[in-house]
Nucleic acid binder design. Structure first.
Length: 578
RNA sequence: GCGCGGAUGGUCUAGUGGUAGGACAUGAGCUUCCCAAGCUCAUAGCCCGGGUUCAAUUCCCGGUCCGCGCACCA
């Protein structure tokens, strides 16, 4: 069995995740997290929130999953988040129109997706391309877009179309003016969101790695282009970089510190470097194996339309590299687009440290002259004069100013333009923030944490399966067992379990079968610690605490147990400290 | 979406034109003083639809889902 098969089997059997609605035949690309999986997901999201929101001082919001169509017209998703399809009338098969054209032997087109649909349709006709399935000519068939967004209607009727968001980010961008106001217009600030996103994938694959509904944890960090990240906090962190140069050259990953990566220009944006640094430590914290991890830079052709630089955090799963996180510089693209489509202000007024006085050339044309002289053209001439004053104030040194409009040349006496150079005091400027975006796929983090912590080893000659999950993210922190369910041990153990729950610990109680079987059960779901109530407990109020990975045991007084276990979970102490 | 392969209790599987057997797991009980022991009993299964047939879990067709390769992955 492959790694993926073993993991899927364990996931289903132990309640991490399973295919949704299997009783109805299942539906591709949808998975349900069971009790263990939901708990693991909660813990990973909490660790993310702790690192990327709380400790960075960012804010977290929660936007709707449905947004009206105009939002995605602005973001470009309606237009570009599509595949080109052509449908055969004869057999009903749909084909990728751009690929039919590219694959045709006589075709010289290499990137048909970049062409308009009509043009691709013409190419299909020109080359007499037939349906690959049944051979019917496709020349007459229209080339249509298949949009990967799920479409819906807001309210009754179809007058108000909407889409399920394909990324949580747009929910942050559309209300940017609100967040800027909340941040008292002080850049930089970050807005984070953990939530569901939806993509109607043509072909969902590989368990929960590619699904149609998934959780994202996204941070949109809005920065002034002049802002610098606090690089010193992570400058010594070693990060495995697989740059474009390395991908096209030796093909090997290069370890370097965050500082080196910036100084040597391997990572262009210091902000991205900063997030690569803190994220490497975070991945380790939730159980990603650093020997199966790398940061890979996007090649030029991979970059999305809005990004100038992008690095993916990738984990190795069953021999494949899978994207966990995209770290992208989105520039001002999204805010510009939403500003353009709404007419609202998506910028921030940045006050200078000190007001600056600048000389600004202005014009104040004498309309009583221009009007009669130039008639209909007068208004356009004024606009041109204003532009000229800003562009080339020296032009006003002469006796007359010449402007060209629609091929006509007009000469205006300089004295009629009201040209002057004014001293203006500016206290700041409007800045459209640049966006630094780390975008995490939660399901892939969960899958990686499981795959990378999966172990098969031997205890006293017996094989066991365990998940070496970090205690912080393990679904259950402690299993509580009576050594046997008699002589009052069960009662004492049940009481202890509820005491530990009251102390805020995630506890499982189990009294079935032999003690070893119960340990193995907890090993298999990654429970890091098990507490056993035995006969000595009744005498001395102590229990044994058993550690998952080493199977070592120590005796601990019950009175100290809540603090000890909390400390172990939170990483304040290690098992050896007890 | 294309091609290839697959689908039998919760899991892993055997097998069959006459409705299915095992292992593990699970539950009850016995046993058991710290790592999947043993014994007894119990629960539980042929993906869906159509066709062929007296009879289909089995053969054929279609679908759904899963895996792999291709494509896709803003």
């Amino acid at each position: 069995m492959s790694e993926g098969d073993r993991l899927s089997e364990l996931a289903k059997r132990r309640g991490f995740f399973n295919q949704t609605a299997a009783a109805y035949g299942g539906v591709a690309g949808f998975y349900t997290y069971g009790p263990q999986g939901a708990a693991l997901k909660d813990n990973i999201e909490a660790a993310w929130r702790d690192r990327y929101v709380t400790r960075e001082g960012h804010m977290e919001i929660d936007a709707p999953t449905v947004l009206p169509e105009p939002v995605f017209e602005a973001s470009g998703h309606v237009e570009t988040f599509t595949d080109m399809l052509v449908e055969c009338v004869e057999c009903g098969e749909s084909h990728r129109a751009d690929h039919l054209v590219e694959d045709h032997p006589e075709s010289t087109v290499e990137d048909a997706e970049a062409l308009p649909n009509e043009e691709v349709g013409e190419l299909i006709a020109d080359h007499d391309i037939d349906c690959p399935a049944c051979g019917t000519p496709l020349a007459e068939e229209p080339v249509e877009d298949f949009n990967l967004m799920f479409e819906t209607n807001i309210g009754p009727g179809s007058s108000s179309p909407g889409y399920l968001r394909p990324e949580t980010a747009q929910g942050i961008f559309v209300d940017f003016p609100q967040w800027a106001e909340y941040a008292r217009n002080q850049l930089p600030f970050g807005v984070a969101q953990i939530g569901k996103a939806y993509r109607n994938e043509i072909s969902p694959r590989k368990s929960i790695i590619r699904v149609r509904e998934f959780s994202q944890a996204e941070l949109e960090h809005f920065v002034d282009p002049d802002d610098e990240p606090p690089l010193e906090r992570v400058e010594d962190v070693e990060i495995p970089l697989y740059s474009v140069a390395q991908q096209q050259g030796e093909g090997s990953v290069k370890e370097m510190t965050v500082r080196e990566a910036v100084d040597e220009g391997v990572v262009d944006s210091p902000w991205l470097a900063y997030y690569l640094g803190i994220s490497k430590e975070w991945y380790e914290r939730i159980g990603v194996d650093m020997d199966r991890f790398r940061y890979r830079q996007h090649l030029a052709g991979e970059l999305s339309h809005y990004a100038s630089e992008c690095w993916d955090a990738e984990s190795e799963l069953g021999g494949d590299w899978v994207e966990l996180t995209g770290f992208a510089t989105r520039g001002t693209y999204d805010l510009d687009k939403h500003a353009e489509y709404t007419g609202e202000d998506f910028s921030v007024f940045q006050q200078y440290d000190e007001p600056v006085t600048v000389e600004r050339p202005t014009v104040d044309p004498e309309m009583s002259y221009l009007g009669p002289e130039f008639g209909n053209a007068a208004a356009d001439i004024v606009a041109e004069l204003e532009a000229l004053a800003e562009r080339d104030p020296d032009a006003f040194d002469a006796e007359a100013v010449t402007v060209e409009l629609d091929g006509e040349t007009y000469e205006i006496p300089t004295e009629k333009t009201g040209f002057a150079v004014e001293e203006v005091t500016e206290s700041g400027e409007h800045v459209t923030p640049h966006i630094i975006e780390p975008s995490f796929g939660v399901g892939r983090l969960i899958y990686t944490a499981l795959a990378h912590s999966y172990r098969e080893d031997e205890i006293d000659g017996d094989q066991r399966t365990r998940l070496a999950l970090p205690p912080e993210v393990a679904p259950t922190t402690v299993g509580v067992f009576p050594l046997m369910d008699k002589d009052g041990l069960g009662e004492r153990a049940r009481k202890l379990a509820s005491e530990l729950r009251a102390a805020g610990l995630e506890v499982t109680y189990d009294d079935s079968g032999a003690i070893g079987r119960r340990y193995r059960r907890q090993d298999e779901v990654g429970t890091p610690f098990c507490v056993t109530v035995d006969y000595d407990t009744l005498e001395a109020e102590t229990v044994t605490v058993r550690e998952r990975d080493s199977t070592d045991q120590v005796r601990v007084p019950i009175a100290e147990l809540p603090a000890t276990l909390s400390g172990l979970r939170d990483g304040d102490i290690t098992f050896d400290d007890i």
